[in-house]
Design a protein around this nucleic acid. Structure first.
Lengths: 350, 350
DNA sequence: CTGTTAGCGCCTTCAG
DNA sequence: CTGAAGGCGCTAACAG
């Protein structure tokens, strides 16, 4: 009967002995060094396969100082569909590069980010991908990261010497706003998340630029609500707005949770309005909800790419990569203002 | 100007020198060994803090053979809401135990599982959490895992000496079926996923037990469809069923993707039917869709617990943990058969 | 109570 | 083309 307890694994030395060579030769063979005779190489490879040898990454890492062979990903939680997508894209790309991904969550608590980053840095991860909620960044300065390459996802880096991947949410929101204005809407509401987060501020900026740029509409403070942390809060805010003397005819939801709240309110039979969401799910897409969408997997992939390239070439200057946020028309956002007046709005599309 | 390139980190020896002691004493201090004089300890701790020392996990890992300080999680993809939840729960629990989580995806391709597991094992992870699609398990035998503790999530282990965490899906589906029968339904349809996956088979089993157990209803092959891989396929299958001479009056969707398809078809104005889904989203819950739900975070947490406990005590016998799947009544599943006949079904709840 | 020593598995000079 | 040797950072005997 095989012993099922912690089996010790084959070491380089054992391979060397089995092949009748020195450990140095085994190493050279494994690294495809040209300075190894054909016959020797064959003997070594045979021994490697025979014994099922795999190098011990910890020994390797110890040897050449840095390099844990894993990249850390800091997220605020996988429950977030966007971040889950980023993680998936990053993992795939890292795997292709022979790296593994250590994932660490702040559990939606921005204050926890420093300790989470710290744990990863202390572990000597090869690089760090950070998808942050907050703007804090003291813990990401070089003297805290010990030179570990950092890629920020979705947030300004300020003077940080880190790479950055973002989506151009502001431009997309601006475009969506202009589109609604073009359809005759004059009372357009924006529902946003916590303004402590960078994306919320950025998207609201886009909204305001869309309004002022048009010249035709000026902002009504009653139609802009932020600090919406749950879909339930979004529903409540929306209901209140729709009861205003001059209710909005179009709603812009600036994140997925809020979009969900608006969607539910809409399906529950709220007064009709044009609606553009942000990010989407299979259900919202299937229901014909227009939305500003991004490709989370691609964001993750690109972030991983940046990290990998910096691993290979540490001297690179910080890079910024801006990926598209696109407005996808599915019906709910293309309802002209006058149709609403006429009361012919379908609640859902077929 | 600070050098932003790979800063070498403080080592144990440097701390020892700064504190005027030997490295052994520093180690002892750090491990809270009682055999250290108060004054010495203070000096050491001061030096540690002063220099910002953190142990190098790779050196530690190398020293005591096994132990990478990280647990691997094999998933088929985070896009899967359930698996994302499991990952979140596991990560939190592992973090509490001072472990990190390396996540590796098979990208929905069961055939890839062996290589993914292999990469993790070769990395010498401390333990492995596996959420598999398929039944394959050759790659999880002790001679492939070298004694690394394995916890399976959601699948039978067969004779494998691994721990297991599952939810009792079959019982819940059986209960749901009986509930529908109790409401007068006699034509109940079940839509299931790929029968190559264990959960799909298990849930169908529950359905059949529910039917036969009642004695009142016998299975109609036309009302059981499996191999549904996308929500779109589910919609198509559902549409076909509703066009049968004797269409079903109740639908059981046996996974989230299928539930989504049924939900969309329902919202698009399909003929009315009682509906119970499996797993849920904020939207489906908000729309009053009854469903069999599980607590993915708890599943992850328990799996992590098992792994951690086995790390502490490797000799334990394999354990099986069955967590509940509960039927949550939200309206869509509580429609009596005769109400349908009367044509009074609301499409959504208010 | 504390210091010395050896070695975990690997890679990289430096010799031959 | 190949071997010998040292050391990455840490900890666990083994002295003292």
């Amino acid at each position: 009967m095989p012993d099922e307890r912690a089996a010790r694994r084959v070491t380089l030395r054992e391979v060397a002995r089995a092949a009748g060579v020195s450990t140095a030769t085994v190493t050279r063979t494994l690294q495809h060094s040209p300075r190894v005779e054909e016959a020797t190489r064959d003997r070594v490879m045979a021994a490697v396969k025979e014994l099922g040898y795999t190098p011990n990454p910890m020994a390797q890492g110890l040897r050449d100082g840095r390099r844990d062979g894993a990249v850390g990903l800091v997220t605020s939680g996988f429950t977030n569909v966007f971040q889950a997508g980023v993680a998936a894209g990053a993992e795939r790309e890292l795997r292709r590069a022979g790296l593994q991904m250590i994932i660490a969550s702040t559990d939606e608590d921005p204050a926890r980010e420093p300790e989470v980053v710290r744990a990863l840095i202390d572990r000597r991860v090869s690089a760090l991908l950070v998808m942050p909620d907050s703007d804090a960044r003291d813990h990401l300065t070089p003297d805290h990261t010990f030179g570990t390459p950092v890629v920020m996802v979705g947030r300004q880096t300020g003077e940080l010497s880190a790479d950055l991947v973002t989506t151009d949410d502001d431009a997309a929101v601006q475009e969506a706003t202009e589109r609604l204005i073009g359809l005759g809407h004059r009372r357009i509401a924006a529902l946003a998340g916590r303004s402590a987060t960078f994306p919320a501020r950025r998207r609201l900026d886009g909204f305001r630029r869309g309004l002022t740029g048009s010249g035709a509409v000026e902002e009504d403070p009653k139609l802009v609500v932020s600090e919406l942390a749950t879909s339930e809060q979004a529903r409540t805010a929306l209901r209140a707005m729709l009861r205003l003397p001059h209710p909005p005819t179009a709603i812009l939801a600036l994140n997925l949770g809020i979009s969900t709240g608006v969607l539910l309110e809409r399906l529950a039979g709220a007064a009709p309005f044009a609606f553009i969401g942000f990010d989407e799910t299979e259900v919202s897409a299937g229901l014909g909800i227009s939305a500003i969408v991004r490709d989370p997997q691609d964001v993750g992939r690109q972030a991983a790419r940046l990290a990998v390239s910096r691993l290979a070439e540490p001297g690179l200057a910080p890079r910024v990569l801006t990926l598209p946020s696109r407005l996808v028309a599915r019906g709910s956002g293309e309802i002209p203002a006058d149709e609403l007046a006429a009361g012919t709005t379908p609640l859902t599309t077929r």
